[in-house]
């Protein structure tokens, strides 16, 4: 639970100042610092980013009556269902976060294995 929370908070703060790909750096770092298994690292990285992205996107969507979400769904997926974007957005952020977390954990394993 702790890595998930740390990833969520740190990545949210980082993205206020840094480009979007800072999520990869944050999840890599956190999972390097602390994660038990590769699966958990991926899970924490994925959910830490995906939850933040989903909540923020949902907040914007609701506050702006989904005007742009609708147009973008039409533009990117030729569908009038803005909900698709609310799923694809966290999925993409989550994948980037998840793989970065997994990489963090695996790199740590290299160092840990050494005497």
């Amino acid at each position: 639970m702790l890595p998930f929370l740390v990833i969520a908070v740190l990545s949210a703060v980082a993205q206020l100042f840094l480009p979007w790909w800072s999520i990869a750096v944050v999840t890599f770092g956190v999972c390097f610092w602390r994660s038990r298994t590769g699966w958990r690292a991926f899970g924490n990285g994925f959910s830490g980013i995906a939850v933040v992205w989903f909540v923020y996107a949902l907040l914007i969507h609701v506050q702006t009556d989904g005007i742009l979400t609708g147009r973008m769904a039409d533009l990117l997926f030729k569908t009038k269902m803005p909900v698709l974007l609310l799923l694809v957005t966290p999925l993409m952020g989550g994948l980037v976060g998840g793989f970065a977390g997994l990489a963090g954990r695996q790199v740590r394993a290299v160092f840990a294995a050494k005497p």
Binding site: Q15, L16, P19, W20, W21, W53, Y56, A57, I60, H61, Q63, T64, D65, I67, L68, T69, M72, L85, V88, T89, M92, G93, V96
Partner: peptide, 17 residues
């Protein structure tokens, strides 16, 4: 897509009330 879909940086930031 990363830049475009990021709620912190992408198109989401252009949504206005």
């Amino acid at each position: 897509f990363g830049r475009l879909l990021s709620p912190f940086e992408g198109f989401w930031q252009n949504a206005e009330a």
